[in-house]
Design a protein around this nucleic acid. Structure first.
Lengths: 148, 148
DNA sequence: CCTTGACCTTACCATGATTGGAAGGTTTAC
DNA sequence: GTAAACCTTCCAATCATGGTAAGGTCAAGG
């Protein structure tokens, strides 16, 4: 099975398969005498696993961890469960932050006339340099969410 | 006012101020005889504006648009409002996708023993190569969400 | 046996927003 | 007059992914 077949079977592009190999996310594939990568069903399974995990929003780092567990016959389900729940909790935290943004935007938009006058309070609000910072908490959270 | 002071006053790092200038997001700053950038209060306001908009999750492209409107004395509040609401709607779509991921993860985790046995169904599920794809809709949505 | 086309290889470039560093010039304060 | 703290530009790196180019390989058909 060449890389193109593995790509089709797993849904991961050939480019990405090579990249995943280069960063050590998946093991190095075997090679033919002429240098072509060859893949077994087992390796396609790993690729499919990675694909699905990416789709669920797992970071490459976390998938690296999951793949190790998956390849480890002595893996403990407790750790897998913990990783999944950690990821769910992180997603929920981000959801809360994004919801706060949405609320802010909708609130500002509600007080904007929406006509042709140049005094939409959205702009005034963004522009405001005042030092009161009643939104300190939210602002901090949002900034923290901008990593990765 | 040098770039360092403008950075402190606006919360945008000096590096980033130069970058924003290089991509045309903010106008080119004036220069001293020796080449130092100089900033007025007005320009610091723009920087602060950008900072707050970034914090609210606006893309650079969208901020570019907002800054143009802000600098345009004939700006129409209708457009500003529309941009804000568009952005809110996009955020809500992403929130829905993320919530779907969370639901999936929690569902899988609930059926995982969480002990030391190596049979956590989370892994089996990720590994599953079956072609039923009952989640087709969601999967498509999630993939689509990975652009930007 | 040779050509053609579809594959494979590596390597480099690009994205977007941001940070980091290096090498060198300027200003300020002691 | 010198040291520290600033500033300048340029270059590199991040992360996951896509694109392209130059060249090697394989299978089918003439």
């Amino acid at each position: 099975m060449n890389i193109g077949d593995a790509a089709k079977a797993s849904g991961v592009s050939a480019k990405l398969i090579r990249y995943y190999e280069s960063i050590g996310l998946i093991p190095e594939a075997g090679r033919t005498a002429s240098g072509y990568r060859v893949y077994t069903k087992q390796e396609v399974s790993i690729l499919h696993f990675v694909k699905r995990a990416r789709t669920l929003g797992f970071s490459i780092e976390r998938i690296h961890h999951l793949v190790s567990l998956w390849r480890d016959k002595e893996r403990a389900s407790a750790e897998v469960k913990r990783i999944a729940l950690d990821h769910a909790a992180e997603l929920e935290a981000k959801i809360a932050e994004m919801q706060a943004m949405v609320d802010t935007l909708r609130e500002r938009a509600a007080s904007c006339q929406g006509d042709h006058r140049p005094d939409c309070p959205i702009l005034h609000d963004l522009e405001n340099t005042g030092g009161d910072n009643r939104n300190g908490q939210i602002t901090k959270t949002l900034i923290a969410s901008q990593d990765r």
